[in-house]
Design a protein around this nucleic acid. Structure first.
Lengths: 163, 163
DNA sequence: GGAATATGGTTGAATGGTCAACTGTTCCCC
DNA sequence: GGGGAACAGTTGACCATTCAACCATATTCC
């Protein structure tokens, strides 16, 4: 669909040609980046979504995170995280632990093996991020990209606070 | 992983704190956007990836596209597109047709029913795109975002030409 | 203090996606 | 013009994700 069709039915504000073009670039570009990064990691036996989980755990204070918190960080459903965590646990890369204060809770953390794997993967991954995204943009362009997405993230956090 | 660790093993150029922050925002932001948009369409019985297929078909010259061309446009594997197309075909929204000049080829096009569905979906979708992305950014920010991603797309097209 | 409700996490069935192998067609070039 | 490589698309088995239902624990509030 396209253009501003002054139809009786729709009150929809369509995108201007410029907006349209930018949106197209966004959609296709983000998908290309995600695909390329995922492919890079897949060659080494992991998915981007799994990598992110390991990465978040490694940086979390105390090296552990509750399932829900982690799910929010990596933008996955709790159910999906449960399944993925089970897989990673079977690989021996992460471990679950009950949390004291809240007996409903479960904390995930890296095993030594998981930490090792992550360190190895991080090298290829960072190189990929540079090659696919950073090196293709000027520092200013990349900074602008970061700022824009940061505002989107921020706006999202606000909008879901008032629920 | 993080920080610049002057380790004997790695020659890896890690991300600077600023780069790191921007990259994080990118990753999380793009995922939030994709999730939110997908949710919006799912409420109306379609996935974003399916919507994109319908949308590309509706804008293609002649209203039809070869499978491979479409797959490239929406950044999906040919296999995935085959499966999705079969689903959409069963719904009666698209139809396959053999192409004359190249007897290996298959062209996909919208059915009238598919066009109708798309028109209905487009309204909710455009509203979602505005709400989730456009309205959260200034026009300048959005334009910058578009430019950055356009360069990524462009760079990708160049880099896969010389294969 | 106990019922109602919300939260944290898991489960399994159904659906969607990936991967590697396959068919049929076209292109290349000797 | 015939053999081999490359291309277009499909298939089916396997793996990942979604969705709705579920159990257990916390919280709220009368």
């Amino acid at each position: 669909m396209h253009g501003a069709s002054p139809n009786a039915v729709d009150e929809v504000r369509w995108l201007s040609p410029d907006e349209q073009a930018a949106w197209r670039a966004y959609l296709r570009g983000t998908r290309l980046v995600a695909t390329a990064l995922d492919e890079g990691l897949t060659r080494h036996g992991t998915r981007l979504t799994e990598y992110e989980i390991l990465s978040m755990l490694s940086e979390a204070p105390g090296g552990r995170l509750r399932m829900s918190a982690l799910a929010q960080l990596v933008v996955q459903s709790r159910s999906r995280l449960t399944h993925t965590a089970t897989r990673l646990e079977r690989l021996g890369w992460v471990q679950r632990r009950a949390v004291r204060e809240d007996r409903r809770g479960v904390e995930l953390s890296l095993t030594p093996a998981g930490r090792e794997v992550l360190e190895r993967l991080a090298q290829v991954h960072v190189a990929d991020v540079r090659r696919i995204l950073l090196d293709r943009l000027t520092p200013e362009e990349f900074a602008a990209l970061g700022r824009a997405m940061a505002r989107v993230v921020e706006a999202n956090e606000v909008s879901e606070d008032d629920c």
